[in-house]
Design a protein around this nucleic acid. Structure first.
Length: 443
DNA sequence: ATATATGATTAGTC
DNA sequence: GACTAATCATATAT
């Protein structure tokens, strides 16, 4: 009876690499219930098997066939299967159930959140969808802003899916191959269905570990992409000059109350062609055009208030510009001397503009009184008249050019905040002495 | 290379 | 939810 283990051993060596053979201690007590004649039969058979390697292939094949057809084969085979099943189960019956890997779950969740795994297509990631939803009316330029990102993301997505499919396919192929092999071998050596199943499990585990690596590197790629394209803070983009002009124009023409309404913000965003920008790296809603305008106004307000002196020049310039614009719009009859387009900032109109700005500056620096002495051309002088008219019309600065304070931070109260000034025309500062703006409010 | 300007973020307030 | 004030991190000017 001590031949059984050796039989399995010799075969295992051929067929299944790494499969544990039957240990010696199993020899006694299980198989030896037959008579002596049968023992002799088995002994013969085993002897034949042992000599198979010495024979030619054809011969071996023939012997194999003979063995398969032997009358003892089924019984023997069953016994072997039984023994093996017990052994294998005792060796590693414990670790069948496998808890889900937390890291794999993490990766899966992230890929799902980024829209890489998840449902097919649909315009890209969940974040992008949120962007489209959040930006509302100005969604048009949104896609332009993120098309690059989305293209790259879908590229990653495609690679991911291709690779995943490849692995899946390879896994399946390999599994069927192994299964066929085992089934084939199960005709000649004891392989139970359970064992096949176990083997399949092992294969799947191996392949899923490869998949996890794929998922990991995909996650990394997405993270890099995000930080490269979407973190607006890291890749800050200044507004273009025109946008800044428009925003400044609004700011300085509403200096008494520079808090644009939501509609106004929307309007400004549209006029400035401000695009959305992604904020944060989570699935938080992205920045809307509106909130970018809000950012701008928030920054502007705080920085203006902090150092009014620094912004004086800018303030005067924009005041003049707005005034000229308004003048051009309202009284086009008297505009023979200013052919420039008032609206397009930084274009051909810059000459007149800068002249006006200089004028206002000199008004400021000279404290007003002697501004007539500055070398200003006649056309500028006529503009001054227009401006005075316009300004008094606009109601912002009733004292006009002759006043000392052309452009005082009227709206700012003692606390440093903009008090609501619904009627700007009444908020002039006639009581304030010259230059008081510079001294008391900064810092 | 350094300083300043500037858009975005964050904590805290109302 | 919008705002302020402080701060971050980058873009741009020097």
């Amino acid at each position: 009876m001590d031949e059984q283990p050796r039989l399995m051993h010799s075969h295992t060596g051929v067929g299944m690499a790494g499969h544990p053979g039957l240990p010696q201690h199993m020899q006694e007590g299980t198989g030896g219930t037959d008579g002596d004649g049968r023992k002799q039969d088995i002994g013969d058979i085993l002897q034949q098997i042992m000599t198979i390697t010495d024979q030619s292939l054809d011969e071996a094949q023939a012997r194999k066939h003979a063995l398969n057809c032997h009358r003892m084969k089924p019984a023997l085979f069953n016994v072997l299967c039984e023994i093996k099943e017990k052994t294998v189960l005792s060796i590693r019956g414990a670790q069948e159930e496998e808890p889900p890997d937390p890291q794999l779950m993490r990766l899966d969740n992230m890929l799902l959140a980024e829209g890489v795994s998840g449902p097919e297509k649909g315009g890209g990631s969940a974040a992008a969808a949120a962007a489209a939803a959040a930006s509302g009316g100005v969604g048009a330029d949104n896609s332009a802003e993120h098309s690059d990102y989305r293209a790259k993301l879908s590229q990653i997505r495609q690679i991911y899916h291709t690779e995943l499919e490849k692995y899946e396919q390879a896994c399946n192929e390999f599994t069927t191959h192994v299964m066929n092999l085992l089934r084939e071998q199960s005709r000649t050596r004891p392989i139970s269905p359970k064992e096949i199943e176990r083997m399949v499990n092992i294969i799947h585990r191996k392949f899923s570990s490869i998949q996890m690596q794929l998922k990991q590197s995909t996650c990394e790629a997405v993270m890099i992409l995000r930080s490269r394209f979407l973190d607006a803070r890291r890749k800050r983009r200044n507004f273009n000059k025109q946008a800044t002009e428009i925003l400044n124009e609004y700011f300085y023409s509403h200096l008494s109350n520079p808090y644009p309404s939501e509609e106004a913000k929307e309007e400004l965003a549209k006029k400035c062609a401000i695009t959305v920008a992604q904020v944060h790296h989570r699935s938080l809603p992205p920045h809307t055009c509106r909130s970018r305008v809000s950012n701008w106004f928030g920054n502007k307000r705080i920085r203006y208030k902090k150092n009014i002196g620094k912004f004086q020049e800018e303030a005067n310039m924009y005041a003049a510009r707005t005034a000229v614009n308004a003048a051009n719009a309202s009284s086009h009859g008297s505009q023979a001397n200013s052919p420039s387009t008032p609206n397009s900032a930084g274009s051909a109109g810059s000459f007149n503009m800068s002249n006006s700005g200089d004028l206002f500056m000199s008004v400021q620096s000279l404290n007003g009184d002697s501004y007539q002495g500055a070398q200003v051309g006649a056309n500028v002088q006529s503009q001054v008249d227009t401006l005075r008219h316009v300004i008094s019309q606009t109601g912002g600065y009733s004292e006009g050019l002759t006043a000392n304070q052309m452009y005082s931070p009227q709206g700012i109260n003692a606390n440093g905040g903009w008090q609501d000034a619904p009627t700007p025309s009444s908020v002039t500062s006639p009581t304030e002495g010259p230059g008081s703006v510079h001294s008391d409010t900064s810092n």
